[in-house]
Design a binder for these strands. Structure first.
Lengths: 140, 140, 140, 140
DNA sequence: GTGGTCTAGACCACA
DNA sequence: GTGGTCTAGACCACT
């Protein structure tokens, strides 16, 4: 009930040595936070300016990340009020869903195969990363 | 069986959205293939032109990848006969390999999550589709 | 056969009084040019810098338009070589296609209805705009 | 039939991607409805709160639209009883109306074109879907 | 020469 | 206060 009860449940960090552009790092962190439930629909992101200060980068860089997420329908921005996780519920029927699932899986596997990654490694990695991301039950 | 004795046992794939330059993707895939035995010493790589056509990219880009691999002693170019895996022992960077695996897995999972696909479904699909594509046992 | 045989078949113009941001005007003009066939798959757009000079605007503004189109999969950019109309062929089956068609039509009609636009007006406008855009035969 | 005598004969829709601010979209739709007779003098508009709920936007945004319409003498607010269309003759800007119609039509056509949908299909679908929604004859 | 990223700073519209 | 647009200019990686 305190004023900050619904405070932003995400902390951003930037790695200047990773070679990944700052704006992409921000997008990745938002995507991960959405995937594992730390950010849910309608949640508000930090303001462009405040996040820029926090990360010690230029506001334009944050704005670029937010803008790209808006184009991708990941977030919705409302002039003058802020940036929010999109409410859009992708409404797909079972057939379409199956088609998409097969397509992205196939694409993933062939890409992995190009790097000589074995099936076991894939499954291991998905379990590792996935248990953090796609809540499957109660992992605690 | 004879004509294909020196057939290239490697399939290249490029991801235009990964942010990794094409020439680096090619190098990485060659290194990976050497490391896990799909390419062994003396194996012949596709010609610059044929690979460029296969991947629908500029031959200069393939040439750059080959050049850089030659500089690093990964391959040897023999004028008129082609490009071959050199004798040098490749010590593929385990960290780099891990980084790639994590990245493609992460991208896969977040995309799936955006469609509300659960971890179990992912694992099931990979088992189904994967056994046809990815080598399961030891590659040596 | 001249060197410029495949020169860019599109001329951009900006209206500073329309209230539409420059970068959006650029996107709109590319979309229209694609829709009516003046730009087809693989066609090359002007370079960021040259278009910026032509339009007397900052290169960043052009880059922003190109970047947004890249995110939307309208164009593909290749580092160091240029920006091209995307080759992507949306592969959708008849059912999916029908679903999309119905959805965007329904959305269009309800939006128009909110502005009190009659069915006749809609049909007229589509014929007017459409005959320029969706080639239906030979309109000349 | 009596209880709904003063029922609001107008449906509002907002397009978050049009770039037009919500408050302006509301004003435009009211003006359009007045111009074509769906709203006549003395007709009552929805309350600020109910419209805000319907459109899932901030009540302040609706209030701003109503305020601006009051300043322009389009509506009159009667404390405690509601907001009503004023006596003033609305001379809706024919150019503005045309601009809107063109824009939504253009957006519709280019989106359809990106799916390879032809003009004939569009016209057919609009005839099918549209006759249920859009008034066909004269609205006076 | 191509586009990509980032900074700095200005001005505007919306809430 | 919020985000949106645009300019100016720097530096980098890729072809």
């Amino acid at each position: 009930m305190t004023k900050d009860a619904d405070q932003i449940p995400i902390t951003f960090t930037l790695d200047s040595k990773s070679g990944i552009p700052y704006y992409k790092q921000i997008i990745l962190q938002v995507e991960m936070a959405i995937a594992d439930g730390r950010l849910s629909k309608g949640a508000r992101l930090p303001t462009v300016r405040s996040l820029a200060v926090d990360l010690s980068i230029n506001p334009n860089t944050v704005a670029r990340a937010y803008n790209e997420m808006e184009i991708r329908d990941i977030v919705v921005t409302q002039q003058g009020s802020g940036t929010f996780i999109s409410e859009k519920q992708i409404t797909i029927d079972a057939i379409e869903r199956e088609r998409i699932l097969t397509e992205i899986t196939r694409s993933f596997i062939t890409k992995a195969a190009s790097y000589g990654i074995t099936l076991e490694e894939l499954l291991d990695h998905i379990r590792d990363l996935g248990s953090d991301i796609v809540p499957k039950g109660d992992p605690s």
